[in-house]
Nucleic acid binder design. Structure first.
Length: 1021
RNA sequence: GCGGGAGUGCCGGAGCGGUCAAACGGGAUAGGCUAAGGACCUAUUGGCUUAGUGCCUGCGCAGGUUCGAUUCCUGCCCCCCGCACCA
């Protein structure tokens, strides 16, 4: 995909430029909007017209060849342009069927216990733009194909749409343009919705949801109260991400590379009191259940990584005789601890240094490092000594404590035991502050030997003699490249062997060079890989695309810490163990001593839901002067978002609404103030899929029975960008509601499909990049059916694609062709059983393809099938109907139009017809082989013709064959009767076919004897 | 650094152990139908060779496994995407 952008202009491109662009093209490009009124041939009434520019523009009918000059009154315009009238009026067909579907409620569904359900869902959009671009069109088309397919399979398909309509952009628009967020939002929704309708998406519009309306957000508040009741919602002071530009806190999932996901500003860390949901209570289940999901490995990996479980031990260090637990995954390195590092944001840091001479240093340092997440790739390690010491519980050594910028405040306990010899960060810090480095792990004496180019056989034999090298395979030929991978059990002896026999050590002590056997480029990587190369020089080596690389960082102890496992040293009674054993033994020891506790830790944090913004769900909490924070009572919900706010100032606009702010305490009826934080948008999207199941309910968020009927979502479709945010929260929410008895599902989304991104000019197509191609532009020109078909045809739905209009014409032509086929005379073809075979095979293949999201391949097969049907003398109606059915997934409007055409005359809607079933008995592979044989024959004839022609030119003669004679084996005669027709069509010459044993055959050159089974002989006369 | 994906013709993209590399679409070239083409039809589109044949080259580069590799493995190159100071 990216390739297109990288590659230079092709040769073809430059050649093209040599040829002058035809005038007509240029004109058309300049004035694509000008159309001609004439739609029907005045003579025969057909619509297959062509128009030609020129001094006197004319119209020509392709059917009856009638030609006439065009409307004199439009002559001026026509002089500029000749533009074909589309013979199909897409727009009115689209409107017609969209209206019909809506009127007949074709896509509305009810729970029906007798029918199997299927829930298809696309991630609901955030209504920030007022149009749809090709990226959207592609996404919605994917979902619609699935919905239509499952519907035709007989499932009760729930396929809803709604809008995630709370959020900052609306508020920003209000600030900038002075429009109230509500108006802005509702306008956008109306526009987007109209475009979605124009796409012919088969949503059940009766279930529409907009999250900014009180009908919806009331339940957000209700859930909040439930969570609060069950201890799952709480308020705490914590170091949180603060976006200075959006003026709000952000959840961890909304910070990308240290920047705000919306505005890209540097995010600061602030100590603030905020509302959280206890996602960490569910960390283990969220992690464990990932394996149950039919999601892509990538998304699963991202989630696992995000939850980030690590196994380790809490070890009690003592500071001022108080216990300071510290988490580590590497207790085997505890004897190597040479300093402690505490986070700058640690709440107890200042307390620790209070009234000491170090207090000032620490304070200055905190100020200096500004406490914001930095975007540098790897932060320069900085820190300051706190003057305090911690006691190592195993050695009783006094360990100095440093305040350091690389320690995260809210992971584990905010303080780490630093082992510079075996942790890269600790190492860097120690180097900088001249803290001792104590090695407690030694690299293991084992490795792998990789030998490029073969050694002499006898040398390998010698290696083997040592017994340490197990050579798996040696290339027999000297001089050829061979790779030998051999585990080396005893490095020291092996190295000695190498030194003695093959190599000598380089001066810096790192690499090994072989000079003993006539080569200069032999290198050894101790502890990692041994790469021995000899015979031949460096240049030759490069020729084979191999480069020599000395991983200096791995060799030079001065740069890198040894972080792998190995043999324990300098650790008293634990010496000699390997790391894995030592981890267990030391953990046992610590636990026995009461100095430690094995535990698991997660990277996942609690979900920060407070936002200091206006356009969101108010948090239903009241601060009473006497009672403190009190939840609003259920019956007072919803806490309405006031509309009389001022967006001009800085800060949260909610603070400007007095009516909202001032209230009474639900408990003591005294004076109280409302919470002005609102909930982040992820709250809205964490349960919207449940609301769809019962969207009109005014009594509760949803009826359990209904949700249990529809949930879980069978197929979720959406971008991979939500892998950690929305998809984790929604899973969390589902699990909590399950535990509250509100539904039965464990997981919200059984299957997840991540569609690819649509790029343009090398960037993701989006409003913010300004590189959008809108639905309007394309559908006006080609109709939405073409747009949908093209987008799904041009590449697999999960892969990224670069937007191009190249090829869209082809799709348009194809649709037109299928449409015109309906007028063909219906009847039985001679090749009926062959058609049936292809028909059933096609259905079988397409069904498989659709099941596996290979829409592009399914479309290809539909096209092939259509071509085949079109080639036949008569229209095979049955086959054609199934063609229309399958095509209707992609092009619902035109298919509906055909379905109801008087010639075809089907009842009901094709959209609610049933998916064709393949009859395997009718699939006959022989036909396919015969088709191939026919193709070969046609090919052969053409090949001969070509050769003859070339000969003519070369030898300046003029032999032009006029007739083709084909000689087939007698029993193959019926088969090749059709082939003869194909040859006729292909060559435009007369064809006569004989059986080889036909005595009356015309065969002057006795070619007939060349005929073989499946391969007739040919003679050109 | 870690994780995921990818590299196929002029282009977009199929194929993912053999039956066939290049389906399908686009582009280009030639021809037909035409007074006129943007419709439609036909052929060609790696090289050599040939009355329909045969051979070679070839799926980022270099090796390996296999009777056989575009497909599996190893190393390297390049590109894209995501995460990243998680102790």
């Amino acid at each position: 995909m990216k390739k297109t952008m990288v590659k230079k202009e092709s040769k073809m491109g430059t050649e093209k430029n040599k040829k002058p662009i035809k005038k007509i093209n240029a004109v058309r490009q300049q004035n694509p909007e000008i159309k001609v009124k004439q739609k029907f041939c005045p003579k025969c009434g057909c619509t297959d017209l062509q128009f030609f520019a020129g001094e006197a523009p004319i119209m020509r009918c392709n059917n009856c060849k009638y030609t006439s000059p065009l409307f004199p009154e439009r002559e001026i315009e026509l002089k500029k342009i000749a533009y074909p009238i589309d013979t199909i009026d897409f727009l009115s067909i689209e409107n017609k069927w969209q209206e019909a579907w809506e009127k007949e409620r074709v896509f509305q569904v009810k729970e029906d216990k007798k029918k199997k359900k299927y829930y298809v869902l696309e991630m609901f959009p955030y209504p920030s733009a007022s149009y749809l671009h090709m990226g959207h069109v592609r996404n919605y088309s994917i979902g619609d194909v699935i919905a239509r397919y499952q519907r035709m399979q007989g499932f009760n398909v729930l396929y809803p749409m709604g809008y995630d309509s709370f959020g900052l952009p609306a508020e920003n628009a209000a600030k900038k343009e002075g429009i109230h967020p509500k108006i802005y939002t509702e306008r956008s929704i109306a526009q987007i919705m109209s475009y979605q309708k124009k796409l012919g998406l088969s949503y059940d519009w009766s279930r529409i949801i907009t999250t900014h309306t009180p009908d919806y957000y009331k339940w957000n508040q209700w859930f909040f109260l439930k969570f609060f009741e069950h201890g799952l919602a709480y308020k705490k002071q914590a170091p949180v991400n603060w976006c200075p530009s959006c003026k709000t806190v952000l959840a961890n999932e909304e910070v990308i590379e240290g920047k705000c996901w919306r505005c890209d500003s540097q995010v600061d860390i602030k100590q603030l009191e905020q509302w959280f949901f206890k996602t960490t209570d569910y960390a283990e289940e969220l992690l464990k259940d990932i394996d149950k999901l039919d999601w892509s490995d990538k998304v699963k990996a991202i989630q696992k990584n995000w939850i980030g479980k690590s196994k380790g031990i809490m070890i009690n260090f003592k500071v001022d005789n108080k216990e300071w637990p510290v988490f580590t995954t590497r207790p085997d390195t505890i004897y190597g601890v040479t300093f402690m590092a505490i986070s700058l944001q640690h709440p107890k840091l200042l307390e620790m240094v209070k009234d000491t001479k170090y207090e000032k240093d620490v304070q200055t340092f905190i100020k200096k490092s500004q406490a914001h997440k930095d975007d540098v790739e790897w932060l320069e390690k900085e820190g300051v000594f706190t003057g305090k010491y911690a006691v190592n519980p195993v050695t009783n050594e006094k360990i100095p404590i440093y305040a350091a910028n690389f320690v995260i405040a809210d992971y584990a306990t905010g303080m780490v035991m630093a082992v510079p010899a075996h942790d890269q960060r600790d190492f860097e810090f120690a180097k900088k502050f001249k803290i001792p480095i104590k090695e407690v792990i030694q690299p293991k004496n084992a490795g792998y030997m990789v030998i490029e180019k073969s050694l002499p056989k006898e040398k390998f034999a010698e290696l083997n003699k040592y017994g340490q090298v197990n050579i798996e395979k040696i290339d027999k030929d000297w001089g050829k490249f061979a790779r030998v991978i051999a585990p080396v059990e005893n490095e020291n002896q092996f190295v000695k062997f190498l030194e003695k026999n093959l190599l000598s050590r380089s001066e810096d002590g790192g690499a090994w060079y072989s000079d003993s056997i006539n080569t200069t480029n032999t290198i050894v990587f101790p502890n990692k890989h041994f790469v021995i190369k000899n015979q031949g020089d460096y240049e030759e080596y490069l020729k084979y695309g191999l480069k020599l690389k000395i991983p200096k960082k791995q060799l030079e102890k001065n740069i890198k810490a040894f972080t792998e496992s190995g043999k324990i040293i300098n650790s008293r009674s634990f010496d000699g163990l390997n790391s894995a054993e030592a981890i267990e033994k030391i953990s046992d020891f610590l636990e026995k001593q009461g100095q430690g506790k094995r535990t698991f830790l997660y990277k996942l944090r609690d979900w920060l839901i407070s936002r200091q913004r206006y356009w969101g769900t108010p948090i239903p909490i009241v601060y009473c002067e006497k009672c403190g924070p009190v939840p609003v009572s259920e019956k007072d919900l919803p806490v309405l978002l006031p509309e009389d706010v001022d967006f001009k100032g800085a800060g949260n606009p909610l603070l400007t609404s007095k009516d909202f702010l001032e209230t009474t305490c639900p408990r003591c009826k005294g004076k109280a103030k409302r919470e002005t934080d609102t909930m982040g948008g992820f709250m809205d999207s964490s349960w919207y899929f449940l609301r769809y199941c019962d969207a009109q309910n005014t009594e509760k968020p949803f009826e359990k029975e209904k949700v249990d009927y529809w949930m879980p979502v069978n197929q979720y479709v959406g971008g991979i960008e939500h892998a950690v945010g929305h998809l984790i929260y929604a899973r969390f929410f589902t699990k909590v509601l399950r535990d509250l008895g509100m539904l039965s599902a464990d997981e919200p989304f059984t299957k997840l499909f991540n569609q690819g991104v649509v790029y343009k000019d090398g960037k993701k197509m989006s409003k913010s990049y300004g590189n959008t191609v809108t639905q309007d532009e394309i559908s006006k020109k080609y109709g939405v059916d073409t747009a949908r078909l093209f987008l799904l045809f041009v590449s697999a739905p999960q892969s990224d694609m670069e937007w191009t209009t190249q090829g869209i014409e082809g799709m348009s032509k194809f649709i037109k062709k299928v449409y015109l086929m309906k007028d063909k005379e219906q009847g039985n073809n001679k090749t009926q059983d062959r058609i049936e075979s292809m028909h059933n095979k096609t259905i079988q293949d397409i069904t498989e393809d659709i099941k596996h999201f290979r829409f592009n391949l399914a479309i290809i097969k539909i096209m092939k099938f259509a071509d085949y049907l079109d080639e036949q003398e008569f229209l095979s109606k049955e086959a054609y109907l199934d063609l229309i059915k399958t095509l209707s997934l992609f092009c619902p409007h035109i298919c509906e139009e055909i379905w109801h055409d008087p010639e075809i005359n089907q009842k009901g809607f094709v959209s609610s017809s049933s998916w064709p079933k393949a009859d395997e008995k009718k699939i006959n592979q022989i036909f396919e082989e015969q088709e191939k044989a026919m193709d070969v024959l046609v090919n052969d004839v053409n090949n001969i013709l070509r050769i003859v022609k070339e000969k003519n030119i070369k030898e300046k003669q003029n032999i032009t064959p006029k007739k083709i004679f084909i000689y087939v084996l007698p029993k193959e005669l019926p088969l090749f009767q059709d082939a003869a027709r194909a040859v006729e069509k292909s060559t435009g010459l007369g064809v006569q076919i004989f059986a080889v044993n036909d005595k009356s055959k015309y065969d002057p050159q006795f070619k007939a004897s060349k005929a073989k089974p499946g391969k007739p002989a040919i003679y050109l006369d």
